[in-house]
Amino acid sequence: MTQHFIKLGEGYGDIYELLKLIESMPDRVERLLALHTIKNDEERTSIAAVFKPTTKGQFQPIYICLEGIPKPDGSSNVRYDAFKEISGKLNQPIIELVVPPSNTYHEEQLYYQQLIAVLRLNHLIPSR
């Protein structure tokens, strides 16, 4: 099985695109993730959706908005609240992990490979 992160971006609109993807294909959503980190002395959160693999080709996409929102701290955070709302609608819990920031790797692709390894080790996505 091939698993890849598909980066939607880091901005406000990108998060709503991720939410629309989730709403459009709720039966394909396997997991919702919140990946917390500290980047440039700021607490940031990436939100991601792991989709079920395709039947042909066994491709498993993981759509991500990389470090696009401030880490939720209990106060109102419109973008994270929208993610929580869709989580509730789908009855799909948000799995939260603390990960290193993407800028600790020279290439973004290496970062994604590391995240895939972490997700596999935690049995959140299947091993090949």
Rank of each mutant, 00 (worst) to 15 (best):
T2R: 15
Q3S: 15
H4A: 15
F5V: 13
L8C: 13
L8D: 11
G9Y: 05
E10V: 01
E10C: 10
Y16C: 02
Y16K: 10
E17H: 14
L18Y: 04
K20L: 13
L21H: 06
E23C: 01
P26K: 01
R28E: 12
V29I: 15
L32A: 06
H36Y: 11
I38G: 01
N40G: 03
D41M: 09
D41C: 03
E42P: 00
E42F: 11
E42W: 02
E43I: 00
E43M: 08
S46C: 03
I47V: 15
V50Y: 05
V50Q: 05
V50C: 09
F51V: 06
F51H: 04
P53C: 02
P53F: 04
K56V: 12
Q58F: 12
Q58P: 00
F59I: 13
Q60I: 08
Q60Y: 02
P61K: 07
I64N: 07
C65Q: 08
I69C: 12
I69T: 15
I69D: 06
K71A: 14
D73C: 10
G74P: 06
G74H: 03
N77T: 09
V78T: 08
R79D: 04
Y80T: 02
D81Y: 01
A82E: 06
A82T: 01
I86G: 00
I86R: 03
S87I: 05
S87Q: 10
S87K: 06
G88Q: 11
K89I: 08
K89M: 01
K89Y: 02
L90K: 08
L90D: 05
N91C: 02
N91Q: 14
E96F: 01
E96K: 12
V98C: 03
V99M: 07
V99L: 11
P100I: 14
P101F: 05
P101H: 06
P101K: 11
T104Q: 13
Y105P: 01
H106Q: 14
H106L: 14
H106S: 12
E107H: 13
Q109K: 15
Y111M: 06
Y112R: 04
Y112P: 04
Q113M: 09
Q114H: 15
L115F: 07
I116A: 07
I116C: 08
A117L: 06
V118L: 15
R120W: 00
R120P: 00
N122G: 04
H123T: 06
P126N: 12
R128I: 04
R128E: 13
